[in-house]
Nucleic acid binder design. Structure first.
Lengths: 333, 333
DNA sequence: TTAAAGTTTGAATATGCTTTCAAATTACTT
DNA sequence: AAGTAATTTGAAAGCATATTCAAACTTTAA
């Protein structure tokens, strides 16, 4: 393996000049060309371990998701990775299985690997090791959920307005008894989505506690909650489920009750992934701009790495949009 | 940050002794205890960059998948990561979007990062950079698909027998006109699954070309293929679709044709993820042992890293099993 | 008690790169 | 052409660790 020293010799310049070349300083055109040629000829690759040892940077970004199989995180990471790899950063992806203790362990692991930045998906609560990241000025970006007890750049969906829009849309086409399958108040995302629903329902004067089914945000809880809700509220004409996995459970329950979508009941689900188009009829869904979100995260990380002393943290909101398919009935027609 | 030197001073032993301690050599019990105490006291963490520079190992494993959102790869990586992280390896995960040129680029990137091992999902064909990995004795494990033109350890599903079993099961409960939605011959996985189907059908003397719908292995092709197949073969009583995404397309087509599962048509789909239980009725599916597969990959990698001079490559087959739900009708009852 | 075997020590060298600095060279201005 | 500004040089130090080696020290066995 060729080293920077070999390149210097080959190009007939000094070692320091090559180093400066590699680090983006401008130098005499002639020298730049000679160095470029030497690099090509020798097939020289920087040794990131040596570089990292010296600079204390690894050119690696840690990404912590709750589950690798979570389609939401995976979609975002796809575009994040594209951007970061272009900038010569590698992604170390890890899951923490919604276990706060495991999260701390995984972050320690990443910390010990001299990570240059870190992206946390869906973390509600600060863990001790985060303070060490702050001390070392390693940028942290929270995605999907703000971290309580730790200030950092945060990229969120505007869940509140997404819910408002869902309810408004249903209202406009004649629905009044709009049920919600909610994850309840315990998580940020779930409570924001619920808050938007409540606000919109109240705005139209059609709010009713009975229309809220609240469980945890997983498939099985949602299945049970939906079953209960629909058995006890035959007047419900539309159902709004507040995440992908809850949509799955809700649809199972609707099937179980032999209700037909959209004739017996209209349906809007949060998140628009493959399920939406498999189910008959295809589902109207609230879609998140995952590609944009991924790019934004990447930009923030790169910017903060380039300028670690900026202490201001921004919170960026992205707007969801509703993708209309066949699961919602227009009652005005 | 404490260094090995600080630990030595604190423990009152020499630097080399600490180094040997950290690398698993046995030494005097008293010294081991003193060093352990010092490490704890100073909260010492090995610097992987320095260590890597010296040993030319990064303690990182590259994982290349075709898409981060691919549930199959994500499921396997979940258990792979668990095992490798326990052994202090980090995972650098990357996708290559089924683009062979991009694959080579991504592998070059990983190569330049001094990766200690590499796992390739669903790669059909060798790319040039793989030779460099071989030269440096960096272990390569192929998953899901053997790499043509490159010999390495390979972890596969026994696709052939999974198909045979699916057909046998359907035959035993009275089905004779068993259609298949196949990805065609172009990919290893698809052709193996088709081969098993053909063999089993021939064994029973019920093989018929007309029963094979063949397209690419994606949702839309499968949708069209299924539509064609079922329109032209009203006698088909059971359908076997050969991967997750094709199942989605096939189900869409079945819905479109207003066929009821399992009364009008029975259905078995390859891969058992969340879709299987959302659809009404819930789908009988061929499930892959993803956790076991992930662990096996990890074991192979660790073993080959520990012993890079072993030149024998093994090919390990895993058995799928059928998860029975409600989409298959027993015609004998 | 002594010889043999096993450990530990301290110092040195190496890994590939960045950074610094005074001195030397080259390039611009006027 | 001279003066100033900008670049490059060569050498050295440093990053945290591993490894080597002869010498010194311990432990074990006879």
């Amino acid at each position: 393996m060729a080293t920077i020293r070999d390149v210097a010799k080959e190009a007939g310049v000094s070692l320091g000049t090559v180093s400066r070349y590699l680090n983006g300083y401008t130098l005499k055109k002639a020298n730049m060309e000679k160095i470029a040629a030497a690099i090509k000829k020798l097939d020289f690759k920087q040794n990131y371990l040596a570089k990292g040892l010296k600079t204390k940077k690894s050119h690696a970004i840690g990404v912590v998701v709750n589950a690798l199989t979570d389609i939401f995180a995976a979609s975002i990471v796809t575009s994040l990775e594209e951007l970061l790899e272009k900038n010569n950063y590698e992604l170390i992806i890890t899951d923490y299985k919604n276990n706060i203790k495991l999260l701390n362990e995984k972050l320690k692991f990443l910390y010990s690997r001299n990570i240059d930045g870190i992206v946390l998906f869906h973390v509600e609560q600060a863990v001790p090791i985060l303070k060490e990241f702050r001390k070392k000025k390693i940028p942290v970006v929270a995605v999907d959920t703000p971290i309580s007890g730790f200030e950092c750049d945060t990229v969120l969906l505007d869940n509140y307005h997404a819910s408002v829009e869902a309810v408004e849309s249903l209202y406009e086409i004649g629905h009044r008894q709009i049920g919600i399958i909610s994850g309840g108040q315990q998580g940020y995302v779930g409570s924001e989505r619920l808050r938007g629903y409540v606000a919109a329902m109240k705005k139209y004067g059609i709010f009713d506690h009975e229309l809220i089914a609240s469980g945890s945000s997983f498939k099985d809880a949602s299945y049970n909650a939906t079953l209960d809700l629909l058995k006890n509220n035959h007047q419900i004409t539309a159902l709004y489920s507040t995440n992908y996995y809850m949509t799955i459970g809700a649809i199972q329950a609707i099937n179980e009750l032999n209700l037909r979508i959209p004739n017996d009941i209209s349906f809007i689900g949060f998140d628009d992934y493959v399920i939406s188009t498999v189910i008959k009829p295809q589902l109207t869904a609230v879609a998140q701009p995952v590609t944009k979100i991924g790019r934004k995260i990447g930009k923030i990380i790169l910017q903060k790495i380039a300028n670690p002393s900026i202490l201001a943290y921004e919170t960026e909101y992205f707007k969801a949009r509703i993708v209309w398919r066949d699961s919602v009935k227009n009652k005005n027609i």
